[in-house]
Amino acid sequence: MLLRLPILLSLAFGLLLLLAPLALDDWRLSQLAQLLTYGIFALSLSFIWGQVGILCFGQAIFFGTGAYVMALVTLGKLPWLGESQILGLLLATLAAGGVAFILGLFLFGGRGITGAHLAVVTLCAAVVIEIATGRWGFVGGYNGLRGVPPLTTPWPRDDIYLSGLETYFLIFAVLAAVYFLLLWLTRTPFGTLLAAIRSNEERTRFLGFDVTMAKLFAFFLSGMVAGLAGGLFAAQFGFVSPQLIGFALSTEVLIWVAVGGRGVLLAAVAGALLVRWGEDQLSDQIGQYWLLATGLLFIVIVVIAPRGLFGRILDLSPHRKS
């Protein structure tokens, strides 16, 4: 019975999110929908960090790329593409995946770099891209792009804009789809290979697996997920700015995932919801203390509880008999 507790809790967590609209007014619901978008973003980092063991300090590069591509497409800044939202989301996902692929080639190709070098290089890449975005007039420079249209229905009807409830369920569905896809992936032989890379990269390489390709594909996938989250975020928030693509958000998502529990996908989502919710709900004055508490909690988790707050209770992997 005890073994099945994580499954029950995971289902309860899903059910809670599904029933949340019953208890929340429109404003709070749209807030929660945004948090779910951050949850998708957290999934992307949890996958690359928790499953493959690549500590990426620049995950917001992909989120921001997605957000900017979505904004550019739906604002009609790329006229030859039309202004379709579906196309925008698709391109946001692919563009972020492309950026991740190129960055991945650079990081893992040849002899590759790992550990601290990789962390610092991705961190610097995020800083460079943030500054460059702020200097680039076409994407709005420091002011970013305003007035990104909210989500609409793809088919015609009276009011084409999605209501708060519809938006919420759309984001929830995307989150669930991404979650189950990644969860399924970790159960395939490919997922086992990724876990092997996480626990000992060199040994996996010696066993004859193409570690570089596997890491590259995982990074590409993680980038796509982050880009999709970014695209959804741009439409929900209506505004993109260089902060979305840079250093600060990259480190924030790292904290959400670590606090939740990096090794378990759903725990990372829960971490993102909890930390962001605290930041949004508390007023400025107490908010400062919340950030302080988050920083301290983060230290404690890294030092003594690497599985995070929810890592143990939401762990779905079959228990080994030891």
């Binding site: 500590l55 550990g115 601290a116 962390a119 480190t251 790292l254 904290i255 670590a258 400062q288 203390y289 950030l291 302080l292 988050t294 920083g295 301290l296 909690l297 983060f298 230290i299 890294v302 030092v303 690497p306």
Partner: peptide, 22 residues
């Protein structure tokens, strides 16, 4: 645990920064 030192000291940097702000 070199990777964990990065994370723990990053948490520390946030905590110190927040204390200064407070």
């Amino acid at each position: 645990r070199p990777i964990d030192t990065i994370l723990a000291t990053w948490g520390l940097s946030i905590a110190i920064k927040q204390m200064i702000i407070i």
